[in-house]
Structures are given as structure tokens and as C-alpha cells.
Amino acid sequence: MTRLLPVLTVVGAILLLWYAATVWLNAPWARDQAARAEATLTLPALVADTMTQDRPVLPAPHQVGAELWKTVAATKVTSKRSLVWHGWVTLSATAVGFLLGSGAGILLAIGIVHSRAMDLSVMPWAVASQTIPILAIAPMVIVVLASVGVTGLLPKAVIAGWLSFFPVVVGMVKGLRAPDAMQIDQMRTWTATPGQMFWKLRLPASVPWLFASLKVSVAAALVGTIVGELPAGATAGLGARLLSGSYYGQTVQIWAALVAAAVLAAALVGLVGLIERRALRRMGMAR
């Protein structure tokens, strides 16, 4: 209860601001319509109108809620109109991309820590890869992979991996270098092999760093997948919902997809956090 109250307070404040913004942003359209009909709106009528428009500039929370209810609970999950189905399409590509990206990130970090040449050569490229706008590179990845016959989930996963490997590289390099000179000297006094140094010292020492970066990386993978769903007229996934919503001015649909993406991101980060707590407790590092 003590933890719930602050959360509810913040949620309440956000809803309040949202409703205020709804009235403010949708009022011009309502006034416009009224002027054309040569009618004048009373304040209560104006407020009511701003919350019931078909294509509002900003849909009211309850409109988004109704859309979510309609597309999540009241539609069969196998239907193409179901947000659950679209969410699943996005989630599966996100999961594959996250595994690809974080796997690549861990391997790159191991290389960077163990090889001076890789340290000097890989890191600038990793940084450069993240400075290229993902919106520019995503269509090219889709097109190039489609031309060699790879379509569907994998191209999106590649874009997700593109975004998600970087936080893992940075976090893991830091984590693998976390052991200090004394700990390394200590291993040397036992004539430890490089392999033992890695498995018994560097890798376990990097675990807290790994999880911190995995949380960033899983959220980035979701963004990557959604961006990957935008080009080439994808028909499935939350990104496709965003795109078709913007084609047809269906702002309610866009916001419903946004909320679904946010919930998905929160769930993914929460899941990584849960695994983190479990792992650290088993390693005796959670107090």
C-alpha cells in the first residue's frame, strides 16, 4: 500500500494533465465545427465534444482505453484486428533481436577486453553504428535481406539487434574490466590460466553490469522492431498499427498501439529485472 499510493498519485496526475490537454488541443476543431453550423457551444458542450471526436488531435484517455478494450479483450487474439496478435508479432521479433543483439554484444565485449587490436578497432565502429539514424538504415536492411529471400521476422530482428547490441557491449566491457589490479594479481599468484581468469573472475564480476545493460538493450530491441515494421508497408505488428493509424488519421488507434508498446516495454524490462534479482540473489550479491 505504501508503494502503491505514490504510483497512483503520479498516474492520477498524468490522467488529469492528459484530460486538460485533450480539451485544449481538440477545442479548435469543436469550435470550428460549431462555427460552420452557425451554432455557439456552451462550455460543458465544448468539453463533452472534445472527448468524443472520431479523429481527435489528442484522444482522451477513456477513448484510448475503449479502443484497447475493443482490440485486446473483445477481439479474438488470432484476428488481424487484435492488438494482442500484433503485439505478439512485435514481441517475437523483439525477443529474437534481443537475443541476437545481446549475444553479439557479449561476444564483442569479450573480444574487446582480451584483444588490444579489437579494443582499438571495434569500439569506434560500434559507436558509429549507433550514430546512423535507425530510420535510415531500417528500410535498407529490409530491402537487402528481402532481395536474398529473407523476409518476415528475421529482418526486423536484425534491426532490433542493431540497436540492442550496443548497450551490452558498453556495459560488458566495463563489467569485464571491473576486477581491480589486486584481484588480477591474486589470480596470478595462483598461476591462473587466462581461461580461469575469465570464467572465475571477470565473467562473474560482470554480471551486475550485464543486467543493467540488458534492461536498456531489451527496450532498445523493442524500438528497433517497431521501426523495422514501419517501412515496406508491413501489415503486422505494433509498428504496422502505428503506420496504418497515421495513414488514415486514426489517432485513437495510434495511441492504443503506443500504450500497448509501452506496456510491452515495461513488461520486458520488468522481466529482465526479475531475472536479475533471482540471479544476483543466487550469487549472494543481492542484500
Binding site: 584481484q183 594479481d185 591474486q186 599468484t189 573472475l201 562473474p204 554480471v207 550469487m283 549472494g284
Partner: peptide, 15 residues
Amino acid sequence: YGYVFQAAGLYPWRT
């Protein structure tokens, strides 16, 4: 030899 450093240097993830 066995070497004892100034800090105990025990691994926090090991008992």
C-alpha cells in the same frame, strides 16, 4: 607461497 593482500579480496559471489 600464499599471498595475503591488504584487502581481503574475497569474491562477493562466492561463499
